[in-house]
Amino acid sequence: MTIPGFPDAAPLAGLIGGILIGLSAAVMLLGMGRIAGVSGIFAKATGVGGSGITRGGAWAFVLGLPLGALIVAIVTGGVDAQFAGFGPIVVAGVLVGIGTRLGSGCTSGHGVCGVSRLSARSIVATVTFMIAGIVTVAVMNAMGMEVLK
């Protein structure tokens, strides 16, 4: 399935993936009583702070992420991914680490869990990181910076 004018978009795969992410967050909420915020859970697992989930529970969730990706890669026979180079990845990773802790969440905690319950903080956070991401890509493109290998 494609959208006229956007031949590269994958709306159906996106929607199915999104529904699975929503179900995952619903399992965490209704099963554990917790927000499925990946940055907070990762911080808890690695011991740099984070959510109130138990350390073992945090590690179980974190290890599940690549496990789920691996299952999809095996079933579909491989997954395409075009990554940035080493330098941009390091800079981006540090900014994501600082920013998500300072801002109390990322795309999952704020963008999915918070927005879906109309939390004012999460809506402000989501609008902010969306605008920052859009401006960053626009500026990099204007400067001719190609980071993807």
């Binding site: 990946v38 940055s39 990762f42 974190v62 992420l65 690549p66 789920g68 990706a69 691996l70 890669a73 997954v79 991914a81 990554f83 940035a84 941009p88 990845i89 800079v91 981006a92 990773g93 540090v94 900014l95 994501v96 600082i98 920013g99 998500t100 802790r101 300072l102 801002g103 109390s104 990322c106 795309t107 999952s108 704020h110 903080r121 402000v124 956070a125 989501t126 902010t128 990181f129 969306m130 605008i131 920052a132 991401g133 859009i134 401006v135 960053t136 890509v137 990099m140 980071v147 993807l148």
Partner: peptide
Amino acid sequence: LIGGSALFGVGWGIAGLCPGPGIAALVI
């Protein structure tokens, strides 16, 4: 909240990765 989210957004834009996909992509 706003400053942190802005920093996160800049990092997200630079490499196209946020925490969940970054960890999941360890096998990709």
